[in-house]
Design a protein around this nucleic acid. Structure first.
Ligand SMILES: [Zn+2]
Ligand SMILES: [Zn+2]
Ligand SMILES: [Zn+2]
Ligand SMILES: [Zn+2]
Lengths: 168, 168
DNA sequence: CATATAATGTAATATCATAACAATTCAAGA
DNA sequence: TCTTGAATTGTTATGATATTACATTATATG
């Protein structure tokens, strides 16, 4: 494996972390995941994923368009949306409903009833898993007779780096 | 007070409940709340609120437009959005990010770190408060150094009535 | 090569939301 | 009552996000 400690993209990434290793590791995982499912991580899809990974941020679909350059041209919206659909299908990307944006998954493949901490300042997103809370939510809903489908848990606020204080 | 038991709009409303009393009670509360804050619940704003209350569902802004008839005319989008902004400001209406829709608040005025159970079948929305879970989420985020702003907790699934089975 | 499936290209359109500015209504104070 | 400023509404246009439809090209398989 390339870089082992120092990445752990699950929390807020340290601005000084080894970004290339971080991205390469994620792409590597994505390729294995696709191979395992007979899905094709084509150049288009891969570029969208890399862009999201490099950003460590939530990006709007049209921002992704702007961030891509294929031989001097920008892809059409539908091209980006198709790539995003594919990546979301495989769990490599999540959509953040509260900000109409998309973010690369920090735990691709692994099961995760995840929630997201979204910095309104730098737009960095931390994907946090804690089965306890998710289970509590699901359990309570089911006690009410509600058959749970999808969870959307998004918390907006200001991340440690933007606050200036790291530890609490 | 008009109807006291039988409503409790906080959970999934029983299809057989006294709807008029339910709506009247909510409008009544809204009027007191506005009066208390020097805000004006004008006919436009009131009609949007009534429509949402009558629906017991999440409605898109353009659905609200269609549902309103002012002397044979539909309001322009911006009119509806202005009414919604006003109502959200006062906490009488919430926006559901995961479905791009708006729903009347079941606990107007009261403090509430609420979450929403959204039926994908009939689109009925239950607004559930449980400070315990909200506090757990906020607490965990803050332990990570994240300054929490807004919570978005939305659970999609199938409500008891649409499942056919009420109790579990 | 022939064929079927998957992926992409291209254009148009649908859906959700806001901006800009004019006109009107409303609540007070002179 | 008249004036005046603030809030609300009317109207039009535009921005932002997302999907549909259909033609074309690439890829894998027999
Ligand atoms: Zn994830
Ligand atoms: Zn930040
Ligand atoms: Zn509420
Ligand atoms: Zn239902």
């Amino acid at each position: 494996m390339a870089g082992d400690a120092s990445l752990s993209s699950s929390e807020f990434p340290d601005p000084g972390h080894d970004h290339d290793a971080c991205r390469d590791q994620a792409i590597d995982r994505a390729e294995r995941l696709c191979a395992g499912q007979g899905a094709r991580l084509t150049p288009q899809r891969r570029e969208v994923l890399e862009l999201l990974l490099a950003a460590h941020q939530a990006l709007g679909a049209y921002e992704i368009m702007e961030g891509i350059d294929w031989g001097g041209r920008k892809p059409a919206p539908v091209v980006v949306y198709r790539a995003l659909d594919f990546l979301m299908e495989l769990g490599l990307v999540h959509r953040l409903a509260s900000v109409n944006a998309y973010v690369a998954c920090g735990h691709a493949g692994e099961a995760h009833g995840a929630r997201f901490l979204i910095c309104t300042d730098c737009r960095t997103v931390a994907e946090v898993t804690s089965p306890g809370i998710a289970d509590a939510l699901v359990g309570e809903a089911e006690r009410r007779g509600f058959a749970v489908g999808q969870l959307t848990i998004e918390i907006s606020g200001v991340c440690p780096h933007c606050r200036g204080a790291a530890d609490g």
